[in-house]
């Protein structure tokens, strides 16, 4: 009896081990399968201008790997292997807030490219940015200069499908560090702590591209409405101004610029106080398949604001 028990026990351990691996795998595959249908139906339904395009997915994956690589190399200060990077990417991709943000960045990069080729709108040095840099107020000029430099770095990084870790908004930066620390259990704790402490100490949200753009926009105050002219302001300032004036997140503002989100764009622009004609102009640039509804001028901006507030927005 005792002998049989022993055999059973050994058998059991082995099964549990295999079981655990397979269970994990199965769950992962289930998740993947579950997401196929909505993605496919979405692509079929919305045609070429789908929200999830191959290009956006590629950029997103590139940025995730880049972040993972930076985290790993901060600890070991030697080149990280692909396996390690993949493992961290796996962990990071569970963070839906991070994915939403990176998706919005990918879309911003994509839109900026298109605006440049179609309408010659410079992604870095828009006329408004030039005016701000030429401001006779030294603080404003300096701020605009830093924002321009950051925007130019962003543009370059997008082409390389990279994203410096320190460019994340503070809450995502903290979340990424936390996830990494949990995933990197095999690192030496003291070394990990020191590396993460260093990353944190170097982080300054006010100096990130998004922080600088928000500060430039905030500095324009009522003038932020000047930022709502895409041709004049460029996409980066346009998105930051739209976000500030409508109290949405900037990621939402970027997503509103996608041609399948025309209701959000209409309502956002109206909430920011543009009239029907100005809204129509922005629509034309963003290649919206639909034009804004005729009666848009009769909707008071306050009502539009309420509508936006009520919509939780698909993003986390």
């Amino acid at each position: 009896m005792g002998c049989r028990m022993g055999e059973m026990g050994m058998d059991r351990t082995e099964t549990t081990f295999v079981e655990a691996i397979l269970k994990d795998e199965l769950e992962r595959e289930d998740r993947a399968l579950r997401s196929v249908a909505p993605v496919i139906s979405h692509m079929l339904d919305t045609g070429g201008g789908s929200l999830v395009s191959d290009a956006a997915v590629a950029r997103l994956r590139g940025m995730l790997s880049d972040i993972a690589r930076q985290l790993l190399e901060a600890v070991t200060s030697s080149a990280a292997s692909d396996e390690e990077i993949d493992r961290i990417v796996d962990e990071l991709s569970n963070d839906s807030a991070l994915i939403d943000h990176l998706y919005a960045l990918a879309m911003e990069g994509h839109l900026a490219d298109r605006l440049e080729t179609q309408f010659g709108i410079d992604p870095v040095l828009s006329p408004l940015m030039q005016e701000l840099i030429a401001s006779n107020h030294p603080d404003t000029a300096e701020l605009a200069m830093s924002a321009m430099a950051a925007q130019s770095r962003f543009n370059l990084c997008q082409r390389r499908m990279e994203l410096p870790l320190g460019e994340l908004p503070s809450e995502l930066f903290a979340a990424v560090i936390e996830r990494f620390c949990n995933a990197a259990q095999d690192c030496e704790p003291a070394q990990l702590d020191r590396a993460m402490g260093q990353l944190k100490a170097n982080y300054d949200e006010a100096a990130t591209r998004l922080g600088l753009l928000a500060r430039v926009t905030s500095n324009m105050r009522g003038g932020a409405i000047a930022g709502l002219n895409l041709e004049h302001a460029g996409l980066a300032l346009f998105a930051s101004s739209l976000a500030a004036l409508t109290m949405q997140s900037r990621d939402h503002a970027i997503c509103a610029c996608h041609d399948r989100q025309s209701a959000r764009l209409t309502i956002s622009l109206r909430a920011a106080g543009l009239d029907a004609e100005e809204i129509e102009t922005q629509f034309g640039l963003l290649d919206q398949s639909q034009s804004p509804p005729d009666g848009i001028a009769s909707m008071p901006p306050e009502v539009a604001k309420e509508l936006l507030k009520a919509s939780r927005g698909g993003l986390a």
């Binding site: 503070s170 903290a174 944190k200 300054d204 949200e205 006010a206 928000a214 905030s218």
Partner: peptide, 13 residues
């Protein structure tokens, strides 16, 4: 509170 909790320099409106 957030800045102190995370130990990060943050910048928000």
């Amino acid at each position: 509170r957030r800045s102190r909790g995370m130990g990060l320099r943050i910048a928000k409106e």
